[in-house]
Amino acid sequence: MTAAAELGTTPPRAMRRDRWWARAWQDGVEPLLGFAIVIAAWQAGSSLSGVPKVLFPSPADVVWALLDLFNTGILVEYVKLSLLHYLTGVAIGALAGVALGLAIASNRRVSDLLMPLVNFTYAIVEVAWIPLLILWWGYGPSIIIVAVAYVVASPLVHNVVTGVLSVPPVYGRAIRSLGGGSWSVLREVTLPAILPSVFNGVRVGAGFGFRALIFAEMIAQQEGVGYLIFTSAATQQTARTVAGMVVMGVLWLFLDRVYLRPLERASVERWGLTSDAGER
């Protein structure tokens, strides 16, 4: 995270003192510096090159487009819808992936039956399903949600299966010798033990799911951030398209920082799972 942490146990004296301005620079300014450089270069490029705005809007144009979108209420409306569909899809996909993974890992016969199917569908990208779904259900949010859920669930199944199979059997034996049955083993051992792999799987899946969201909205929806990006370009409102892209990036940073990372840290670090879960 911070430079001091990367340097190991004995940071140089100047850093150990940790002046507030040094910390503010590290945490607040440095991460934004990259953005500032890109924006400056972009502004310079667009004003010096003389390419028409329709093809190459400047940062200022994009800011105006954002303000305009905000004032008309479209931005808030679309972001809300995109987020709602996205989070619903992630939740459904996470539940489905965990349930399917548990079923596969718990029983040899279920595994023989389902695993080839899961591997097969894993290879079919969500985009390939969308035309078919449109044919069946027409345009609408259900397609978006299904596309996101699908993308989240399919890698998660693998994570859950390997997670369950790597739980040391001695935990289950301990529970049974304390009088517990399969249900207690699931609740007290299997579910908590696979939590890190579930978080990991959901985090990876959520990244792909976010792309799936935008893509599905572009082709199967008439609202949302993806639709905004696509339809604005089609109507030559290029600044709006770029504004949509910026919103997309900011949304992802927000989701990752606010939900995914803290969630992962909270459980995994407190239990010391990073260091000794693998202990026999």
Binding site: P168, V170, Y171, R173, A174, E188, V189, P192, A193, L195, S267, W271, G272, L273, D276, A277, E279, R280
Partner: peptide, 10 residues
């Protein structure tokens, strides 16, 4: 058990 088998999450 030799390996204690204490649940790390409790």
């Amino acid at each position: 058990f030799q390996e204690y088998a204490l649940l790390p999450w409790r």
